[in-house]
């Protein structure tokens, strides 16, 4: 039984082994999430805890060119305690980040 729990036969098994671990999720729209994986299903709907979301966007400050460059360098990020993520936006899920 324990052996069966640890084998990786299909891609989603890799995600199963990441349960309760910190994962990296890349999403459509230049979005990235880092957080603890608490639940997922076959669509890659997920619930993450202590999530940091980073959105990389080039914002425009109409006036001058310099301002555009400045805005594009600063990534905006925020923390959310618990987040449900709809699977259709998921590009990749990467197993625990060990630092």
């Amino acid at each position: 039984m324990a052996e069966e729990e640890n084998t990786v036969r299909e891609p989603l098994d890799l995600i199963r082994l990441s349960l309760d671990e910190k994962v990296y999720v890349k999403l459509k729209g230049e979005r990235e999430l880092r957080g603890k994986l608490h639940a997922y299903d076959q669509h890659l709907n997920m619930i993450l805890g202590d999530v940091e979301e980073t959105v990389t966007s080039v914002e425009i400050d109409e006036e001058t060119f310099e301002e555009i460059i400045k805005a594009s360098e600063g990534d905006s990020s925020r923390m959310v305690p618990y987040l449900f993520v709809r699977g259709d936006g998921v590009i990749l899920v990467s197993p625990p980040l060990r630092s």
């Binding site: 080039v58 425009i60 109409e62 060119f65 555009i68 460059i69 594009s72």
Partner: peptide, 10 residues
């Protein structure tokens, strides 16, 4: 559209 043009140039 103007914003888009500036972005494209960037």
């Amino acid at each position: 559209k103007m914003k888009g043009l500036i972005l494209a140039r960037f």
